[in-house]
Design a protein around this nucleic acid. Sequence first.
DNA 1: AGTTTTAATGTAATCGATTACATAAAGAGA
DNA 2: TCTCTTTATGTAATCGATTACATTAAAACT
Lengths: 331, 331
Amino acid sequence: MSLKIKDIAEKANVSVATVSRVLNGSDKVSQETREKVMEVIEKYNYQPDKIATSLRRKKTGIYGIIFSVKGGKVLEDTYSTKFLKGVLNYLSKKGLKLIVDIHESSDIVEYYDSVIQSKIIDGFILLDLRKNDERIKFLNQKKFPFVVIGRNDENDFVYVDSDNVSGAYMAIKHLEELRCKRVLYISGNEGIPVSEQRLRGVESASNDLNVSVDVVYGDFDEEKTVEILKSILKKGFDYDGIFCASDTMAYAAIKFLKRFGIEVPIIGYDNIPLSEVVGLTTVDQNIIKIGYSAAQALDKMVNGEEVVSLVVPSKLVKRQSTLNFSKRYFK
Amino acid sequence: MSLKIKDIAEKANVSVATVSRVLNGSDKVSQETREKVMEVIEKYNYQPDKIATSLRRKKTGIYGIIFSVKGGKVLEDTYSTKFLKGVLNYLSKKGLKLIVDIHESSDIVEYYDSVIQSKIIDGFILLDLRKNDERIKFLNQKKFPFVVIGRNDENDFVYVDSDNVSGAYMAIKHLEELRCKRVLYISGNEGIPVSEQRLRGVESASNDLNVSVDVVYGDFDEEKTVEILKSILKKGFDYDGIFCASDTMAYAAIKFLKRFGIEVPIIGYDNIPLSEVVGLTTVDQNIIKIGYSAAQALDKMVNGEEVVSLVVPSKLVKRQSTLNFSKRYFK
DNA sequence: AGTTTTAATGTAATCGATTACATAAAGAGA
DNA sequence: TCTCTTTATGTAATCGATTACATTAAAACT
């Protein structure tokens, strides 16, 4: 049906080798021949078969992301989509492709192995990094290219991460600018890197600036947040500002405290769509940029270039949940 | 590095043809030989190179979805993700892969053509169907397999669509059950299939049941909705129920009317995440199922099976925006 | 002019599978 | 026992590119 390199070669009166050379710009082909061949290629709108090319070159130009299915909550948040968008922005610019896949979290290493063996993919982007992640050990040992989103203590890999430290710092700084003196920070789960990084930012801001911050460990979710606030209320609530490690927590806090007539500046983290609707001030982690950079890093790595890990800055999105309080002091 | 069929053949003391036969279960291989070969395959954890297989078979086992970038609002909603999830649920079960891609809406046909010519993909799923869609003409003419999400009047293709007619019918029926008599339906843009289908459901319910429905055309968005309500308020608002063609519209309506002290049962369409938070009753379109079915249909089509188009039923999710009013009458 | 170098192109092997065709061995039928 | 099937397996072509190596012609050098 569709033309192959041999057909083009015949029509242009040259050998397939010459057509291939023209196609790949590389070798020395005379200007004359090059033009003659290009003419035929354009006339017939010829494009090489990527499968054949891949077989020969041992490189497909396809990268992979495998979402682990746990509980079924994969690919339901806007995080995944924004991330994909960033990745695709880079890849589409380069004519590269992305395979998106899902798999149960069990046997995950085996699954990566089978994908590698199938030879379809040149490299992976890893999401949902865990402590002591088996995938990383495996891929490192296989010397198969990959880039990780997020980081942990080991860091025997190239990663792209959002700057949780400065993100949290900005949040506290903003509260300080609103004249908050005693801030409550409800952290995410203890012991995971994201929580530790954000806590570091909080503490660093509290040291630099004129704010005292109390830290309580939550778990990124609503229920636990309410529980924490309940026990604090019992002892008497005397904070004049709250920072939560996620928007979900912050939203829960606002709703809960309102019932007790308590209204203080509150900041969340993540900038989920709901936050825009309810006017929650929050830290926005440029997820698109993270995706873009990860794809770029992976691509460089696959092509043998030197690659360094990267921390992408976040920005504070100021909305009513804090701005309403600025009127009290300014203007 | 990794083993090829030739290595397996040598280790098992048979020819590559025999190994291939064992691999593909097909031909007649003696029980004895089959076991001998399987043993070697398992011992070395051999897996065929999919690129080589694809070249020979002229089929890759990879399907494609191309998101059109227009304005930049692609892949930002939960629709895309849920849809992907459905597609992936099917494909991963079958060991098939999905390439997710984006492209400017201009030159879109050319882009599909180039993807086809690259031979990477066995078939497409088309999103964002338009009237008189060029892609469909092109793919039909090329006889390249594809399945469409949504449908239009032409329907010279296989599609999977959500049942907008019955979705809208259920909404009106629910309002009727709450004893609404005069309902306002704010439709989506006039002239597009989704709007027409939903309108059909509304009208059919209005005929069957004891409700009168006034229809106004909006555009699925907030601003226009508010505009419409403003002009209605001027003439005097005497509806006892509202149905909107999207959750975004419904949420805008609730917010706007509240300012005038108007509170009536309101139903939206789409079940966006916000709706759960604010308690909006809405029609949920089972997007995951739609994705799953589309992938399945495409797969059948590629494998030469007979395929029929499919309409996936939606369900009504009842929440406070209507249930609050049921107390007025029942209990 | 004769030899060497350089540039341009062609020939054929290769990537790793599948499969049409060939062949050998075993079983069936006479 | 001899021929005819049938069954199991092997040989080699093929998919459509890339590329090492060979070859030829032209340019450069002595």
